[in-house]
């Protein structure tokens, strides 16, 4: 919920006074934040005591349990977006 509130605050700020010429700085800041978040996720994973042990013992079963749900989700969602969200391949609205 915090995420949504903060995002709405950003929308409000941009509507009130954020200059369009700062758009590139905004994008660069987003990139830096993104990489820091991914790095911190990696640190948290690597610092788990049983991380390497878990991978070696249940690796194959886990691979199947990641692969099929993820792929089936895409298979289920793609036609739904084509039917209900009316978006073209490049994400623009259909005319």
């Amino acid at each position: 919920m915090n995420v949504i509130i903060i995002m709405c605050a950003g929308i409000l700020i941009s509507k009130i006074f954020f200059p369009v010429k700062w758009k590139h700085i905004n994008e660069l800041m987003q990139l830096i934040c993104t990489l820091l978040l991914i790095f911190s996720m990696g640190v948290l994973l690597g610092s788990r005591e049983d991380f390497l042990n878990t991978i070696t013992t249940v690796g194959f079963q886990s691979f199947l349990f990641f692969l099929f749900p993820a792929v089936c989700s895409v298979i289920a969602v793609y036609p739904l977006t084509k039917i209900f969200l009316n978006k073209k391949k490049n994400g623009k609205d259909e005319i």
Binding site: V3, I6, M7, C8, A9, G10, I11, L12, I13, S14, K15, F18, K23, N26, E27, M29, Q30, C33
Partner: peptide, 9 residues
């Protein structure tokens, strides 16, 4: 998320 909000706005 704040920066994303700005992009959306």
């Amino acid at each position: 998320m704040f920066l994303v909000g700005i992009s959306i706005g």
